[in-house]
Design a protein around this nucleic acid. Sequence first.
DNA 1: GGCTATTTGCTTGTATGCAAGTAAAATCCC
DNA 2: GGGATTTTACTTGCATACAAGCAAATAGCC
Lengths: 140, 140
Amino acid sequence: MLKKPEDCIFFQLAKAAQAGVRYWTSRISHLGVTAVQGLVLAFLADQDRVSSARLGQRVQLDSATLTGILDRLERLGFVKRHKNPKDRRSILICLTDDGKRVAREIIRISREANESFLKDIPEEDEFLFRSVLVRLAQGE
Amino acid sequence: MLKKPEDCIFFQLAKAAQAGVRYWTSRISHLGVTAVQGLVLAFLADQDRVSSARLGQRVQLDSATLTGILDRLERLGFVKRHKNPKDRRSILICLTDDGKRVAREIIRISREANESFLKDIPEEDEFLFRSVLVRLAQGE
DNA sequence: GGCTATTTGCTTGTATGCAAGTAAAATCCC
DNA sequence: GGGATTTTACTTGCATACAAGCAAATAGCC
């Protein structure tokens, strides 16, 4: 922390991310899903019938965490676990029809939500900001 | 999400913050504290003998969350809850001698950790990046 | 073929976050 | 002065995160 603890990058990152989760949650909670559940549905809409391991790599979620999230998405009726005939260890995560509908709506909402969350950030700063985020996320 | 879910700002923020927490954790875990516990100790080193409410405002932590964190810091012997003679509802959070030692060490580590976490980010980009983080964190 | 190492999804235990609600104490307002 | 409102710290319940470890299944290697 330079002069104050508030200057610590880990604090600043955590609080900005929390603000993002709060905002994103407020935009999709009426669909009955949480922020993370909504992101997982969006990833599944982009690539369906994937193994839990592959989905976890894509969403960058621990297998322990993902198991719980899939449990809840399955209980909500948005997702189903299917057997993988090619590999009896793995499962194939599939969106249900309901899941597909909700996922499409989430993707629609996300466009507007991204824009309005960043409305006070000049366009030319946004590109740099996002690229730093991605660089830091990869960073190790 | 523009073309891909990975482009969603809420996803990018969350993953960058997670990487930050992982890095920060790896730097201070030998002291026996978690990432958040370490930040709370740093805030207490900056301002000791504060009420839980005031500390919560400063660290931007929910009172429910802070209660648990203080429980664990107290169990570790780094913090003590004292009565506030001026207001019997509130408590004064105080660093113990051990807590002060650890907090000083954490602050020392944080300088190097901030620098090395951001080592691939050009200086001129860092200022803009941090200012956007702070703006988004306040944003509502 | 058969033994070993790896992969896969899961469980358990701990630590945040946050919504909702509580009891005690202080404050407001007439 | 005293009732209504607000503040304070806490509790409960749920949803991530992640370390550690498990059993079943597959892949690698001799």
